[in-house]
Amino acid sequence: MASLQILSGKRILVTGAARGLGRDFAQAAAEAGARVVMADVLADLVQGEAEKLASIGLNTSAVSIDLSQKKSIQQAVQTAVSILGGLDGLINCAALATGVGGVDMMEYDETLWDRVMTVNVKGTWLVSQACVPHLKASGQGKIINISSDTALWGAPKLMAYVASKGAILSMTRSMASELGADNICVNTVSPGLTLVEATEYVPQSRHDLYVNGRAIQRQQLPQDVNGTAIYLLSDMSSFVTGQNIPVNGGFVFN
């Protein structure tokens, strides 16, 4: 996919890009020809990852962003736009996942619930809000919101995370309806359980459940999701909006 350079000239912002799926999205987009700004609250780590990718010839830069702070979001988006000279695409990948699993709904901590909702839901909205004027100016803007297939099958003992990812699905539809007149496409990608840093805490039994329940019975890797994201950022998907695409090897069918 990357060799096709189907994102040549595109200017892309990826949040949650210091590691995991976000980092892989950033690399895949850059390999497909895009100029990419990688944003994360882990400022030193995302700077290092952007420099690593730049050292192999990819056009990547980094900015710090805290999705719980509106001012930080606005500053990060403005810096990204200044670096890129505009904006054609946004991948909302940043989310709080580590440490939110394995708790029964009756025992869930209210403070953690609020933080998950602030980062995963409100943060996604605020980043999108800050990017929309620039995406509108591009003439063919793209927003990809990263949800999770846990919201499709109702994974137990993950209620805050599942609820936040369900909200992302609904937000995507509403955003698509509102932004279509501005020629901005908004879609959701819902990965299954993927082998990244954020899923290291997940019990082996949950990994086994996914592998055994998939039509394609193996572990899911970040690169399994990249092609869908690149397609949705490209001109090939200019008439696709308001959709959710599960990428999970057939664990959940849409």
Score class of each variant (00 low, 15 high):
Arg11Glu: 04
Gln74His: 15
Asp182Pro: 05
Leu126Tyr: 11
Lys142Gly: 06
Asp208His: 12
Tyr231Met: 00
Phe253Gln: 12
Gln129Trp: 09
Asp40Met: 11
Thr188Leu: 08
Leu58Asn: 00
Gly141Asn: 04
Ala160Glu: 07
Gly166Ile: 03
Arg35Trp: 04
Thr15His: 04
Ser3Ile: 01
Thr150Lys: 13
Leu232Arg: 00
Ile6Thr: 07
Thr194Arg: 02
Asn248Gln: 08
Gly180Gln: 04
Thr79Trp: 01
Trp113Gln: 12
Gly48Leu: 08
Thr79Ser: 09
Val116Asp: 01
Ala160Cys: 10
Ser205His: 14
Leu87Pro: 06
Thr124Gly: 06
Ala95Asn: 05
Asp235Lys: 05
Ala18Lys: 02
Leu232Met: 02
Tyr210Arg: 14
Leu152Ile: 10
Val127Leu: 09
Val14Thr: 04
Leu221His: 15
Tyr108Gly: 07
Leu42Lys: 12
Arg214Lys: 14
Cys131Asp: 06
Asn59Gln: 15
Ala26Ile: 13
Leu58Asp: 00
Asp88Met: 01
Gly101Trp: 15
Gly16Trp: 02
Ser128Asn: 06
Ser147Pro: 07
Leu112Tyr: 02
Ala97Val: 13
Ser82Ile: 10
Thr60Ile: 03
Ala151Thr: 11
Glu49Gly: 01
Gln75Cys: 11
Ala43Cys: 08
Ser61Tyr: 09
Val211Cys: 06
Asp182Val: 03
Leu42Gln: 13
Met159Asp: 10
Gln223Trp: 03
Val211Arg: 15
Val127His: 04
Ser61Cys: 07
Val14Trp: 00
Ser68Trp: 03
Met38Ile: 05
Cys131Phe: 07
Asn244Trp: 04
Gly101Tyr: 13
Gln75Asn: 14
Gly99Met: 09
Asn248Asp: 15
Gln140Cys: 12
Asp44Ala: 13
Gln47Val: 02
Thr79His: 06
Gly242Cys: 12
Leu158Asn: 12
Val202Ala: 08
Ala151His: 11
Val41Pro: 06
Thr172Ile: 13
Gly141Ala: 06
Glu197Val: 09
Val14Pro: 01
Ser177Ala: 15
Glu107Tyr: 11
Met106Arg: 14
Cys131His: 05
Arg115Ala: 11
Trp153Arg: 14
Gly85Ala: 11
Gly123Val: 12
Gln129Asn: 14
Gln220Ala: 14
Glu107Ser: 13
Val63Tyr: 01
Leu232Pro: 01
Gly9Asn: 14
Ser205Thr: 15
Leu4Ser: 10
Gly9Lys: 10
Val103Cys: 11
Leu135Pro: 03
Leu13Phe: 12
Trp125Glu: 03
Ser237Glu: 02
